[in-house]
């Protein structure tokens, strides 16, 4: 039991790291997302005087 837990910890930790990194980078650089991100980062500079109804 213990050996399994340790083996899992030692090997899969790295796998998770790589998989997550690849996933996040793909998402961030997915061409279709460009417009959304540009809008998002500019959105906070818009007028924000009251909630939208």
């Amino acid at each position: 039991m213990h050996d399994m837990v340790v083996a899992f910890s030692k090997s899969w930790g790295l796998f998770y790291l790589v998989a997550l990194a690849v996933g996040v980078v793909i998402y961030a650089y997915w061409p279709a997302n460009r417009a959304r991100f540009t809008r998002a980062k500019n959105s906070i500079l818009d007028k924000d005087d009251r909630p939208w109804s």
């Binding site: 997550l20 996040v24 980078v25 961030a28 650089y29 991100f37 906070i44």
Partner: peptide, 28 residues
């Protein structure tokens, strides 16, 4: 990520980078 761009009157340099660093920090 909110007050700095707001005060500078400029959007954050790279929104993509902020996403990548978010998941990096959360995970690592």
């Amino acid at each position: 990520y909110y007050y700095l761009p707001k005060r500078a009157g400029r959007p954050i340099f790279s929104y993509r980078l902020s996403i990548i660093s978010f998941w990096g920090i959360t995970f690592m």
